[in-house]
Design a protein around this nucleic acid. Structure first.
Lengths: 226, 226
DNA sequence: GTCTATATATGGATAGAC
DNA sequence: GTCTATCCATATATAGAC
């Protein structure tokens, strides 16, 4: 029933992802260097503030070479999205998630692991994630791609999980989307404070402790008490 | 080079912030028009993507006029921060908040009102808030000013509130900062989904219902059960 | 104080030699 | 495929007339 639908759209997404993977192997050395330089500079200075000449210098190629491989500067940006999403979206959303969701771990351990993993992935890929969130605001196609592929799939996965837990009576009977958003919000908020507001200082407590409390709170909020 | 001119320190910026209330009355018609046009274009297209000629056109002044009032383009951006923060930071953080915190409303009603008000303020000022969050990433002085003025104050207020509720035994004994972050995270996450991820569609449920559930969940999570 | 005109730099993008 | 040189448009910023 529900689960079948989710499987299908996930597979559909994976299809797209797998196609992108092939493309990635076809990239030449220089193309990769240009793209890496672009990721670095775009995320550091923003898309418009980073010039193609800087990118060329950073990549160690002539400026003209860039435009042999990419029609326009924006083309570089677009070309970055798929690989970036591949690099973190897949592990962010899929890897371990099905395993965790299918496991018989107690909910709190499950959530702790989930948060911990996702946080690590986000931390490792933060500059790239930030770049995408940044530029989503200004390039609609980009937002469309991210929303459809990433959030579409993630949302379905999460909602399926929440729904099943509601039906099994483990968590309270709220709209699954709302519960899902609450769960994700805790992570979004944490990331927001940690990386956006206080990117330098770091937080007071370490991640593991914070997550422990976070899980305690949110789980207490949504769990069915008998 | 481009960034050769001296950066404003955070302190200098805070000075401006405090003085701004007085200064705001001293602004001429043209200056206000330029600043309004700048807010609009910066938030729509980003700081670098918006040109001074566009700003001039939008403001209905000659381009040269801009540079009579603002030394550089970045100066326009800086000049916007204080008024924007004044316009929403004050009501966001202070207006009603003290009143609510001092009231004898039940916690759930109190939280609902708090979320509802804050959401309205954020919605009304979203383009400006977004602009600041955006540019915080790239201009450290700006981040410093926001963090110190806005988050510094907000955090203290919220933590004081949480601490008092912990001592009165109403909510569980967790680190106040963590509880505070959990409370704020719910709002941050909601705003993130509503305005960043799905700025067009809107959400499934209306804000009031969503907030009701949100408060139910989070409060259930942190409240002391007897 | 404001506008017109312009200086000066740099941006993205192309052409052509190798 | 890559680099050198260069085009053209636009960017920020200034000068000078009013």
């Amino acid at each position: 029933m529900h689960d079948m639908q989710k499987e299908l759209s996930t597979d559909e997404l994976m299809g797209r992802f797998l196609n992108q993977l092939k493309d990635e192997d076809q990239l030449t050395e220089k193309q990769k260097r240009i793209m890496e330089a672009a990721v670095k500079l775009f995320s550091e200075k923003g898309f418009h503030a980073a010039s193609t000449s800087e990118i060329a210098k950073e990549a160690g190629v002539a400026e003209g070479t860039i435009f042999r491989h990419f029609k326009t500067k924006k083309d570089i940006l677009i070309s970055l999205v798929a690989p970036i999403m591949l690099r973190f979206a897949s592990p962010l959303l899929l890897k371990d998630v099905r395993k965790l969701m299918g496991s018989d771990l107690p909910l709190d351990d499950l959530l702790k692991q989930l948060y911990q993993n996702r946080l690590q992935i986000i931390e490792k890929n933060w500059s790239q994630i930030r770049l995408i969130i940044q530029e989503m605001q200004f390039h609609e196609e980009l937002r469309g791609a991210v929303v459809e592929n990433l959030f579409g799939v993630g949302r379905k996965l999460a909602e399926a999980f929440v729904s099943s837990k509601i039906q099994s009576g483990e968590i309270r009977n709220f709209p699954p989307l709302t519960v899902t958003r609450a769960l994700v919000s805790m992570m979004v908020g944490y990331v927001f404070f940690k990386f956006v507001i206080f990117p330098d200082e770091g937080m007071n407590l370490d991640d593991e402790q914070e997550i422990e409390i976070m899980v305690d709170i949110i789980l207490n909020g949504i769990r069915n008490k008998e």
